[in-house]
Write a protein that binds this DNA or RNA. Structure first.
Lengths: 132, 132
DNA sequence: ATCGAATGTTAGGTTTCCTTACATGAAGTT
DNA sequence: AACTTCATGTAAGGAAACCTAACATTCGAT
């Protein structure tokens, strides 16, 4: 499993995504309805979002805050997705990066500090897991 | 938000964790009952697992496969958690690592390849997000 | 004043998860 | 062989989270 797969893996329920993005369920569904995100579904038809999806939602939120309307945002996110794709084509395989990554990720903790409901600060997850 | 927080963040429903770990719900709950993992809970009392929790479950599964019983496993995972903690104490703050991480994570994809149900290969997530 | 875009809200139904309790298979004990 | 114990399966009843569809509201633009 490489980075690409990892980031497109359906992991999060809509409830979690709400907390991560501080968007309402209504908003998220509305954006999907208008072709801005494409979460997977469980067998029971419930939405499952990937890191990429969350990234995209954060980007959407960002643009909304800046006054864009959905039509404009749609163009923007499609655009930035294309760019990413190109980058991907040009960039080498990421198995090497993975090794580095592991090396970097050599620190650990133990007891979750009872964070409970972390409201992700705008763009934090995005910046980490994504690449705009 | 640093790496540590990110990894202890309650994100995954038990359903997802089942797929990630290939453990049954019964098993996961049983391990919790016996003090091997400590997932958070939603307001409605549903379990929410972090990356660390998933890591730990993968480690447990590993040890089970090797014939250990829960008592032994409990000792092991407690041990390895302690080690992680020590490492953490010694290691510098990871905001620097974060910068490197971002640099490394400069590749993207677009359309999830309809993976649907990825059964995480044993230890893959673990190796990526954790550090044993 | 009207319209459309974005979001809120509500209702009814389905899926997922919860706990509790009892059942079962495999291993070890007596 | 009968008994235990451990790890897991399974079933029941209920609660939480999610679903779609429909209607309501807000607000900026015409």
């Amino acid at each position: 499993m490489n980075d690409k797969e990892r980031r497109s893996m359906p992991l999060f329920s809509i409830g979690i995504v709400m907390k991560l993005t501080e968007l309402t369920a209504r908003q998220i569904r509305y954006y999907e309805e208008h072709g801005l995100v494409f979460p997977e579904r469980t067998k029971g038809n419930q939405r499952l979002f990937s890191f990429n999806d969350v990234d995209r939602l954060l980007e959407i939120k960002d643009l909304l805050d800046k006054g864009l309307n959905l039509a404009g945002i749609k163009l923007m996110v499609e655009e930035s997705s294309k760019k990413e794709k190109e980058k991907n084509v040009k960039s080498k395989d990421n198995d090497l990066s993975l090794k580095e990554l592991r090396k970097i990720l050599r620190n650990e903790l133990k007891h979750p500090d009872r964070l409970g409901q972390v409201n992700l600060r705008q763009g934090e997850l995005s910046r980490f897991f994504s690449n705009r």
